[in-house]
């Protein structure tokens, strides 16, 4: 609680790693998507042209393997959209607009692809 009695919004750290290997740690509000965390903090390398509707495949990330089985399984549309990414799809590819940040995901590492468009 803050001194004004307003409840601080809980956050969890997400680490965004650029193709060059530079890492940025962002405290993303729980409930926001990994994509929103990047866009709101100006992380380069996530475009998110459709704004989070799972329709453009420009928020593609490679999820660190240690976190992969902690994510909710992907739905059919995300699976189909992942065939449309510009950088190659790998087994750990996900669309970051479809990953909701939770306390359990604190420390999540996502690697950004070479290009989104």
């Amino acid at each position: 609680m803050s001194i004004f009695g307003r409840k601080e919004k809980a956050t969890a750290t997400v680490i965004y790693v650029s193709p060059a290997g530079d890492a940025r740690e962002i405290a993303v509000p729980v409930g926001d998507s990994v994509m929103e965390g990047a866009i709101k903090h100006g992380v380069n390398g996530i475009v998110a042209e459709c704004g989070g509707a799972c329709m453009c495949a420009t928020c593609h990330v490679y999820v660190d393997e240690t976190f992969l089985n902690r994510l909710d399984p992907m739905e059919a549309t995300e699976d189909e959209m992942l065939t449309c990414t510009v950088s190659p799809r790998r087994p750990n590819s996900r669309l970051s607009c479809q990953i909701r940040v939770t306390q359990e995901l604190a420390g999540l590492i996502v690697r950004l692809p070479e290009t989104q468009v």
Binding site: C54, M55, A57, A76, T77, E80, M81, C84, V86, V117
Partner: peptide, 18 residues
Amino acid sequence: PPRHDRLRALIMGAFTKK
């Protein structure tokens, strides 16, 4: 959606940069 999303994902394959 949901019909839209399935139709879209299907056609989108032909409209990617690659």
